[in-house]
């Protein structure tokens, strides 16, 4: 009984200590920013858009942007674009899905104001909120197509993987192969979301992503070890990053393990409105939908905390082992101390 009383005191002190140096300290060190659910209430409501009209209006977007899902290529490559604008404009295939429609339409009317970024490269691109709403309606349709393409491609890759496994003699049950497919599709969607929302300013070296795209697979020359293709790529990337740093004021940070460097709450509120957490930052308000943000976060978690699944599946075994160990030890202890008092 005395042991339990002492244990109570020790545990109470340890918990007070934990509360003081963790939750309490963090609540005092970081200012609280209210999360508003990616609703963008400060912006004007938009009228219903007509995708047909939007398609015509969107033709001018292709002057700078590519829209792969609609078969439109970028007029300039990333290097030339960054020389012209400071940053490479995004492919717009997913814009209709990733961006909140209200944000998107208001953004087209006045990009600098809506992004809260003083030197945003994109000029106002819609004459009225109605035009903007039409363009948004069009991009929503494009995004559906883009998503379908992503899904079909990911499924194809996943199925090939399953076939390969089966061929090498590994038994793959139906539920397992379904899981592989759904995981591959999810990962592909998450990555595309990240690329659209963050990928032209932020690298993710653990995901092998650079501002110029995936790190290309190159091979060094066998006699000398020189990898010219790699050096070329690095030179281009360096040039791009210098331009980007000039445009943004500094090189935006690599996001490989940002999920461990910032709290979930910070990331969410920061992405929703960067100025609230970091006044004066060059990062624009991106205008993501909740769904779009979840996908971006999914990708960031996959590079920043890749062991999550394994951790959760290993935990019960290790803790279970020690529970059994403790029960046996208790038996031993009781047998040894029997009749001592």
């Amino acid at each position: 009984m005395k042991d339990l009383k002492i244990l109570g005191i020790v545990v109470a002190f340890a918990l007070i200590l934990y509360y003081g140096v963790e939750p309490f300290a963090h609540s005092q060190m970081h200012k609280h920013v209210e999360f508003k659910g990616f609703k963008y209430k400060d912006l004007k409501d938009i009228p219903k858009g007509d995708p047909k009209k939007g398609e015509t209006l969107a033709a001018s977007c292709a002057g700078c942007h590519s829209i792969k899902a609609a078969g439109m290529k970028a007029p300039m490559d990333a290097m030339a674009s960054s020389a012209a604008y400071g940053v490479n404009p995004p492919d717009l295939s997913l814009a209709g899905k990733m961006l909140d429609e209200k944000f998107f339409a208001n953004f087209l009317v006045n990009p600098a104001k809506v992004t809260k970024s003083k030197h945003f490269a994109m000029p106002p691109s819609a004459g009225s909120l109605q035009d903007a709403a039409d363009i948004v309606a069009y991009f929503k349709e494009v995004a559906k197509k883009a998503e379908e393409t992503t899904e079909t491609e990911a499924k194809k890759i996943a199925n090939e993987k399953v076939e390969k496994l089966k061929k090498s003699g590994i038994k793959v049950s139906d539920s397992q192969s379904k899981e592989i497919v759904s995981k591959t599709v999810k990962n592909a969607k998450n990555k595309e979301a990240f690329v659209f929302a963050c990928g032209r300013c932020h690298a993710n070296r653990y995901g092998k992503w650079t501002q110029l795209g995936d790190v290309p697979k190159t091979k060094p020359d066998i006699n000398t070890g020189v990898d010219l293709a790699k050096i070329d790529f690095q030179k281009n990337l360096g040039a791009y990053q210098i331009k980007l740093a000039k445009y943004m004021g500094k090189l935006p940070p690599d996001l490989s393990i940002i999920v461990r460097a910032r709290s979930e709450d910070y990331l969410k509120t920061f992405v929703e409105d960067p100025q609230t957490q970091l006044p004066g930052t060059a990062m624009p308000r991106v205008g993501l939908t909740n769904e779009g943000y979840e996908e971006v976060l999914g990708y960031l978690e996959s590079t920043g905390d890749p062991s999550k699944e394994k951790r959760e599946s290993t935990a019960p075994w290790v803790i279970g082992f020690f529970v059994i160990f403790t029960l046996l030890a208790y038996g031993w202890y009781k047998s040894q101390w029997k009749g001592l008092h």
């Binding site: 290790v318 160990f325 208790y330 202890y333």
Partner: peptide, 24 residues
């Protein structure tokens, strides 16, 4: 083995907590 038996028991309880922290 007498003192050790109690030590090992306490260690067992401790390691449950320890690995709870490690994993969660």
């Amino acid at each position: 083995p007498v003192f050790l038996s109690k030590d090992v028991f306490v260690m067992g309880v401790y390691f449950i907590l320890f690995f709870f922290l490690v994993f969660y």
